[in-house]
Amino acid sequence: EVPFKVVAQFPYKSDYEDDLNFEKDQEIIVTSVEDAEWYFGEYQDSNGDVIEGIFPKSFVAVQG
């Protein structure tokens, strides 16, 4: 069931425009499960802007 919160276990950096880049310990709200390997989610950056994109499930852990 979406949405749910995950926390980055590792930093994720990608050159693909659709990917969500983040640092370790970033909290991310997952709004869609793309497939067995990928989530789609969002978070607010330090400027208060909402950043969204896809990212690999293996880089995050589900909270709770």
Rank of each mutant, 00 (worst) to 15 (best):
E1H: 13
P3Q: 04
F4D: 01
K5E: 05
K5W: 11
K5P: 05
V6Y: 00
V6A: 04
V7F: 07
A8G: 03
A8H: 03
Q9C: 14
F10H: 12
F10L: 11
F10E: 08
Y12F: 09
K13D: 05
K13S: 10
S14N: 04
S14W: 02
S14A: 01
Y16R: 15
Y16L: 11
Y16P: 05
E17M: 11
E17H: 10
D18A: 14
D18P: 10
D18I: 12
D18K: 15
D19Y: 14
D19L: 07
D19G: 15
D19H: 15
D19P: 01
L20F: 09
L20M: 08
L20P: 01
N21E: 08
N21D: 05
F22A: 01
E23Y: 06
E23V: 07
E23W: 05
E23L: 07
K24E: 06
K24V: 11
D25I: 03
D25L: 06
D25H: 09
D25C: 15
D25F: 10
D25A: 06
D25K: 04
D25E: 06
Q26H: 03
Q26T: 06
Q26D: 02
Q26F: 04
E27F: 06
E27R: 03
I28Y: 03
I28C: 04
I28P: 01
I28K: 00
I29G: 00
I29Y: 08
I29M: 13
V30C: 04
T31N: 05
T31K: 08
T31R: 07
S32H: 14
S32V: 07
S32Q: 09
S32L: 08
V33F: 07
V33E: 06
V33R: 05
E34Q: 15
E34W: 15
D35C: 11
D35S: 13
A36N: 13
A36F: 10
A36I: 09
A36C: 12
A36T: 11
E37D: 13
E37W: 12
E37M: 10
W38G: 00
W38C: 08
W38S: 06
Y39N: 00
F40D: 00
F40L: 08
F40M: 08
F40K: 11
F40E: 02
G41T: 03
G41N: 00
E42I: 09
E42L: 09
E42M: 14
Y43Q: 00
Y43M: 05
Q44P: 06
Q44M: 13
Q44V: 14
D45S: 08
D45F: 05
D45Q: 07
D45H: 07
D45P: 02
S46C: 11
N47T: 08
N47C: 10
N47Y: 09
G48M: 04
G48W: 03
G48Q: 02
G48D: 04
G48V: 00
D49G: 08
D49K: 14
D49C: 14
V50Q: 07
V50N: 07
I51W: 14
I51D: 02
I51M: 11
I51N: 10
I51K: 15
I51S: 07
E52T: 15
E52Y: 14
G53P: 01
G53Y: 04
I54V: 11
I54N: 12
I54Y: 15
I54Q: 13
I54E: 05
F55C: 04
P56M: 03
P56I: 04
P56A: 01
K57A: 15
K57L: 07
K57C: 10
K57R: 12
K57P: 09
S58Q: 09
S58F: 09
S58G: 07
S58E: 10
S58C: 15
F59G: 02
F59Y: 13
F59H: 14
V60Y: 03
A61P: 01
A61Q: 12
A61L: 11
A61V: 14
V62H: 12
V62C: 11
Q63P: 14
Q63A: 13
Q63W: 11
G64E: 09
G64A: 12
